[in-house]
């Protein structure tokens, strides 16, 4: 035991213990091994710069050769995002109600809904796309389903949070009126949670637009496949057209959702 006449110093003045020291060394070693594992090398990066310059140089001016095809693929990409998000939002609403502690009919539903949402959220959408390509075949439907599942995970979580944070006083007033659970949700919980839920849904649409570009790479429809083909055939001017088109679409969707957000909230 330490000398009782001297009060112990607060912990922050203490030297790191043996365990902390070992953990620090282990963390450092982990990082160094990760650097080696990824082949991270400044020299190779500098050697790569001329290649980057050459590719970017070949990208300009963008080629208008397959503009019509790119346009259709872009439209399909947006359609996937729109339908996938809408279906995801619609399905995540009931799931989120089950996953809200004070609204769920039974703890079993609560835990089941939370587990499902966690599963949908943690498995990346690209993996869902691979699964659905096998299940329903190549094409935009597989990508749409992948987006839907991903959005159920995303919206389910944030809808549940919004409903949990909704003002409880009006809900109590409604219970005092004799309203049933569904009425309380429709008349008090949803109005309070709506701004947050609209926000989440619009953000989902933006995210879905970006991810639906990538889903094409695994054959789940959309413009991704066009980009991949152009890059593999070294048609960089064509690739740049596609990249600019994607850029324009994502910006347009973001602008649209910002406008809608201002209007609705």
């Amino acid at each position: 035991m330490a000398d009782r006449s001297v009060p112990a110093l607060p912990p922050r003045f203490e030297r790191p213990g043996l365990l902390a020291f070992v953990l620090w060394v282990a963390a450092g070693a982990l990082f160094v091994s990760a650097l080696r594992g990824t082949g991270f090398s400044a020299t190779e990066f500098f050697h790569g710069i001329p290649n980057i310059v050459r590719i970017v140089g070949e990208m300009f001016p963008p080629s208008p050769d397959r503009l019509a095809k790119v346009g259709w693929a872009l439209l399909e990409t947006f359609q996937m995002a729109l339908v996938g998000t809408a279906a995801g939002v619609a399905l995540s609403l009931p799931l989120a109600i089950l996953a809200t502690r004070h609204l769920t009919p039974h703890p079993v539903f609560y835990h089941a809904a939370r587990a499902l949402i966690a599963l949908f959220r943690t498995v990346p959408d690209l993996v869902w796309a691979l699964i659905f390509v096998v299940a329903v075949g190549l094409g935009p439907f597989a990508g749409t389903l992948a987006i839907m599942i991903d959005k159920i995970g995303f919206c389910g979580r944030f809808f549940a949070e919004a409903m949990e944070e909704a003002d409880r006083n009006p809900q109590e007033a409604l219970r005092a009126i004799g309203a049933g659970r569904v009425s309380v949700i429709a008349a008090a919980v949803l109005p309070a949670a709506l701004p947050s839920m609209v926000n989440t849904s619009l953000f989902s649409l933006e995210k879905a637009t970006r991810s639906s570009v990538v889903l094409g790479l695994v054959g789940a429809g959309g413009i991704g496949i066009e980009l991949q083909v152009s890059m593999e055939l070294f048609r960089y001017a064509e690739a740049s057209t596609i990249i600019i088109a994607i850029f324009a679409l994502v910006i347009a969707v973001e602008r649209f959702s910002a406008w809608l957000r201002r209007r609705m909230i």
């Binding site: 006083n169 007033a173 409604l174 005092a176 009126i177 049933g180 008090a188 309070a192």
Partner: peptide, 29 residues
């Protein structure tokens, strides 16, 4: 509960709904 209405200190209206809807809510039972 429908027969015995309650009034609260903090009013407990649904803030984002209009006044008439807040009154209609009394019919929910």
């Amino acid at each position: 509960r429908a027969q015995c209405a309650m009034i609260f200190q903090q009013f407990n209206l649904v803030k984002r709904l209009d006044v008439v809807t807040n009154v209609l809510v009394g019919r929910l039972a």
